[in-house]
Design a protein around this nucleic acid. Structure first.
Lengths: 347, 347
DNA sequence: TTGTAGGCGTTATCAA
DNA sequence: TTGATAACGCCTACAA
């Protein structure tokens, strides 16, 4: 009597002396009302007793929906992504979906990890893609889209802006940072920019320039880091420091927290102290930023919400719900003031 | 001629005038040699042309393997888990597997999130589970195991130690911390313990006690935090400070980095400075710990390796490979000395 | 070396 | 309200 493998609809049906179609109906919330109330109860009881578990693979095959979406991240180990992923999974969870994750940045740049990941995901018949790895010139995004895949971008947009996306208002974020510094009395403010291959790098640089312009200040003091990494920030800051004399600026707005941390190190090495000599502002407000030395003023981005909204948008599209298709959702950042910014010492 | 949906083996076969079984064989590395070389070439070419993608749901149904494993984490947002997950995914990736992730700690403790996650995963027919959420008295783990599921624990063990697990040597970790402090000249060392419902909390407390005993020192100075959180650490440290006079100890070994950060805050509030008044050691060496103030000495755990090895162990079990089944892999931690520890000031 | 037939567990469409 | 039948796409015998 002990079955070696999991019981099926057929087993249940046989056990109850009804047809499997009936049991199938009983299992589906949408069609449960077509089944007689008492029979329904017996079926549910039997399902519990025999420990019935629906076989997703069979259902996926039959209805052509895998209840699965692909998520492309550079690297979950980068502190901005965990909250985004958590937001995605919470939203997917509500509709019974799972995320298939791929970390596309690999130590060995042997093969195109992105392409491989996409192929594996397509074999799994994911119903759509959430992409947090877009650069401004990704060809694969276009061809993926043209193959009919549903896509929602997160945090970054592609070059054309053709794809639906959920991002943070990067221009606004930079304005908040600049306004804050100007209010403190700063006039000579430098920008530690991110890579311009990423939409965030570009948008934040533009945002910085515009904000400075609005205050009638020069935005010439700039370097770009080649990646959003602490080391890159340190190198870039160092370059900025040696390029000009040290007192050429009294504050630095970094395009990203990791860059800001690198800047902190470079400033320290140059014998400058933060914030008394130079004020520093980061971007993202990632975890533990309140514990560093000094606690970093930063532009807080709604990472969790970004993931959640993106997943919702994708699910809406999959259900052919009206939901703001082909829309770009722009979330509002917020300045978090901590100890790394203060009034300029030497005016 | 344009097909609306993805081409199948059947489509390919028809296109080539062969039978779908032949095409099926050509697609499988294990049985490819049974197909004539020239035919194989034509099949591969056609597959490329038509853009054939294997349908995973169909193959999963047919062979009863989903190529998917379930991963249970408390919360990916906790900084210890991203590297573990990355290790898991890198290992799974190599064998064509995907991870289905569930964050079991939810703001609303409405229903048992773990139970729900497991059910959803079982419906997806995951082939096994990687569990990083075990407490020392989890009943569900036993019943899951008894239902025939393959399980490998990560970072924490269950109470009985019946299940295969990959953990860090917590006793050794504490000894490294204590030895370091004793070598610096500390004699009165306190322990900021973690919850004893978790195997790590217990093992680290025992490790602390044993290490102290080996040095002929008293291990009486202890408090336990109720969770591995900064706030809990602060509260617990505060309790320890008020319970006795402040100079009752010259160093604190925390069971976890977040607790150590909380301790840092509590000490600061009490007007004590680290490390000149009190030395502090953390555990885990999570990211950015080198950026906090002061940079924290900590016991580094091989998180990435832990995830990777656990996933490998599970895959080995699934393949019925000999692989050290039912074994517990214990990884070696390493002390990372930074600025939060120094010689005791008042001896 | 290739073809045939049947089944994996579920859902959809009809018919009763 | 329930039952019968035929897919869904692939895989595994077994036969040719």
């Amino acid at each position: 009597m002990s079955r070696s493998s999991a019981p099926t609809l057929q087993d249940l049906a046989q056990h109850l002396g009804v047809h499997k179609s009936t049991v199938s109906r009983a299992m589906d919330a949408e069609r449960r009302h077509l089944v007689a109330a008492d029979l329904l109860q017996r079926i549910e009881a039997a399902a519990r007793d025999l420990g019935y578990r629906p076989n997703h693979a069979a259902s996926a095959l039959s209805r052509g929906r895998s209840k699965t979406v692909g998520v492309l991240l550079p690297d979950i180990t980068n502190p901005v992504f965990p909250p985004i992923l958590r937001g995605i999974e919470d939203a997917l969870d509500e509709e019974g979906y799972f995320a298939l994750l791929a970390n596309t940045s690999r130590p060995d740049h042997s093969v195109d990890a992105t392409q491989l990941a996409i192929e594996r995901m397509q074999a799994q018949r994911v119903e759509g893609f959430l992409v947090a790895t877009a650069t401004r010139d990704d060809a694969w995004l276009d061809s993926l889209r043209q193959s009919g895949a549903q896509i929602v971008l997160i945090n970054r947009t592609d070059g054309r802006g053709h794809l639906p996306a959920v991002i943070s208002d990067d221009m606004l974020g930079m304005r908040l940072a600049v306004d804050h510094l100007v209010a403190l009395g700063h006039k000579r403010i430098a920008h530690l920019a991110g890579p311009e291959t990423l939409s965030t790098g570009l948008a934040r640089r533009l945002g910085f320039e515009q904000a400075m312009r609005e205050h009638g200040l020069s935005a010439k003091n700039r370097v770009a880091a080649d990646a959003y990494l602490v080391d890159s920030g340190q190198v870039a800051m160092h370059a900025l420091l040696t390029k000009r004399d040290k007192t050429h600026f009294t504050a630095v707005v970094a395009a990203n927290d990791l860059l800001a941390l690198g800047a902190l190190q470079a400033l320290k090495q140059a014998g400058l102290s933060v914030p008394s000599d130079v004020s520093v502002v980061g971007h993202n407000d990632m975890q533990l930023l309140d514990q560093v030395n000094p606690p970093l003023t930063s532009v807080r981005i709604q990472h969790y919400e970004m993931g959640r909204r993106a997943a919702r948008l994708l699910l809406d599209a999959l259900r052919h719900r009206p939901g703001s298709q082909d829309a770009t959702v722009v979330l509002r950042p917020q300045l978090v003031v901590r100890a790394s910014t203060t009034v300029p010492s030497s005016v």
